[in-house]
Design a protein around this nucleic acid. Structure first.
Length: 349
DNA sequence: CCGCATGATTCTGC
DNA sequence: GCAGAATCATGCGG
């Protein structure tokens, strides 16, 4: 115990383990000629070079002695403060970075695609089942859709396991570094603040890795989308029966060819096409029909006549001996420019 | 292979 | 969010 005051007084704590070194430094600063200073630096270097020659026990003993010194906490704090002012304050300025917009976009997209966020439908099997259930009509369509869902859930699974792995690795690494720094803080001036900063640096690094994962997941989803959903462009013409049903409705509602949601559903069911899978085929059909009919009424005249005649026949046969006045639109009334129904729609332009 | 038909998508205005 | 308009892309007959 009586050793410590002596260290303090004669050599200074910093050089406690190397009294000679401290002595030389003191001499060096006091001396006026450069020769002596060079000599001192040479000595210091020499001592640094031979530091590894010391036995570990010796080093441990010195470390212990240092740690037990009663002035140690105070000095530690002072050194931390100095370090803080000279080094850390410079880069401490650009903290509190705003949330990366790129990362936010990726997050949003993953969330929208159902890759991130809460599990929907629980697993691929359930997703496929749900797809099959909602598909109803158009077997190939729902099969395609469930395939898409299965692939998406695969991506989702990979994403989550990877993310978990990264998080685990990050935590492990953080703990490791923190322990290391805490351990080193016994011999080096490392403040808790500095450890905190190091942790945030590590987290930043790992989140940039996560961002890469998110990026590649997004890319995978985009590729999947283009392979499956955008294959909707791979047009299949409706069968003849479906077209007839749609045309029948169209020409018998020529005055107002805008089927209600219920009517659309009914038509979709009859035709075996979708009504609300991303976009309604019925709505597409009516949208296209309206615009094309209006653009070239002449071209559709024959078709219109035919369907009008057909509905007229149906109407008469249904209402047994009823007059044709009950028919929604007779062939004659359809193309009579004085007809209210006809004008009603055609005036829309 | 060409050109038209047609289902789907995108853009725009309301 | 819907309808209209333009456009894209494929299907299909000749």
């Amino acid at each position: 115990m009586d050793e410590q005051p002596r260290l303090m007084h004669s050599h200074g704590v910093g050089m406690a383990g190397h009294p000679g070194l401290a002595q030389h430094m003191q001499d060096g600063t006091a001396g006026t000629d450069g020769e002596g200073r060079k000599q001192d630096i040479g000595d210091i270097l020499q001592q640094i070079m031979t530091i590894t020659d010391q036995s570990l026990d010796e080093a441990q003993a010195r470390k212990h002695a240092l740690n037990c010194h009663r002035m140690k906490p105070a000095l530690f704090n002072v050194l931390c403060e100095i370090k803080e002012k000279t080094v850390l304050s410079i880069r401490g300025a650009q903290e509190e970075e705003p949330p990366d917009p790129q990362l936010m976009r990726l997050d949003n997209m993953l969330l929208a695609e159902g890759v991130a966020g809460p599990e929907k439908g629980g697993g691929s099997a359930a997703a496929a089942a749900a797809a099959a259930a909602t598909g109803g009509v158009g077997a190939d369509n729902s099969a395609e859709h469930s395939d898409y869902r299965a692939k998406l859930s695969q991506i989702r699974q990979i994403y989550h396991t990877e993310l978990e792995k990264y998080e685990q690795a990050c935590n492990e690494f953080t703990t490791h570094v923190m322990n290391l720094l805490r351990e080193q803080s016994r011999t080096r001036p490392i403040s808790p603040k500095e450890i905190e900063r190091m942790v945030s640096i590590i987290h930043r690094k790992f989140s940039s890795i996560q961002m890469q994962l998110k990026q590649s997941t997004c890319e995978a989803v985009m590729i999947l989308r283009s392979r499956f959903l955008d294959a909707r462009r791979k047009r299949r013409n409706f069968n003849k029966q479906a077209t007839e049903i749609l045309n029948e409705y169209f020409y018998s509602h020529l005055s107002n060819p805008y089927p209600s949601e219920e009517a659309k559903e009914e038509l979709a069911k009859k035709c075996g096409i979708t009504v609300s899978l991303l976009s309604s085929q019925v709505s597409n059909w009516f949208g296209n029909k309206r615009i094309r009919y209006k653009k070239n009424i002449g071209k559709f005249q024959e078709e219109a006549n035919m369907y009008a005649a057909r509905t007229a026949v149906n109407a008469t046969s249904v209402s047994a001996h009823g007059s044709q006045a009950n028919s929604p639109s007779t062939p004659n009334s359809l193309f009579n420019t004085n007809d209210e129904e006809f004008n009603g729609f055609c005036d829309l332009k």
